[in-house]
Amino acid sequence: MSLLHTAIQTAVIQAAEHAADQAETVHEAVSHPPELPNFVHMLHEIFPGSSLFRFLWQIQDIIFILIIIGVITLFFRSASRNISMVPKRLQALAEMILEGLLDIVCGILGEKEGRRYFPFLGSLFIFIICMNWFGLIPFMKSPSSNILVTASLAICVFCYVQYTAVKRLGVKGFVFHLMGEPKDLIGWLMTPLFLPLHVLEELIKPLSLACRLYGNVYGEDVLLGVGMVLGIAAVAAFIPGTIIGFPLHFPFVLLAILLSAIQALVFTLLATVYISMVLPHEHHEEEE
């Protein structure tokens, strides 16, 4: 956990330094990877003196998360307003999304447990996929390209998995699970070796979840930004001072749509697998 903390701290310090650099010098293309502009950052650039826009720029991820939450809430509320046996268009779409997700989750956890943990896992998937895709809308930004956002999601998963483990296995069973569930004498003798390893593993899980999502989404955004800068540079070589570029980043947009969906799916699947690992075994095998 302290590693994550250090990483986050370093990232924050780095970001602050970058911001300071940006304010001082224009020559920042080498140190700071290009990103697509979003409307909060653009407002800050247009009104550099305004402290309100500067503050909004500093909390830009929160603004975009609130917008996304609003969009999701609006969509599902209007989809579930007039529920009927023969679904209307919106309801059919929402049912299609949720049933597809439920099938995947139930394929790992089993029918009964899958339905039990689906509310958490399903909302995780829908929230993450909306965050990842939001960066592809012009003048918007993916909040998940900030490690603080993905780390908080990963910490949510970590807390939920540990809570589930203690609730389903009991405190004794939880410690037994952490000891690697020894069955014979050799297993018990290996306990001092396995216990720290398993505790470490539990702590590394959220770290890897956070870094995977952040790295993928941020890398994607930088790729799009680089493609756009190259496109503008290609046109500017013939027409100096142009602001219209050749859409060199377009193939990467298609790639980004696919990869964003896969990363959201991977995050959800891994959370599902972590939950399935802490469930009591006999229940799990019965249902398979």
Binding site: A11, C211, G215, N216, Y218, G219
Partner: peptide, 11 residues
């Protein structure tokens, strides 16, 4: 690979 990428972003 993503870890390698992140370490280059951070450092």
């Amino acid at each position: 690979t993503i870890y390698a990428l992140i370490s280059s972003f951070i450092r």
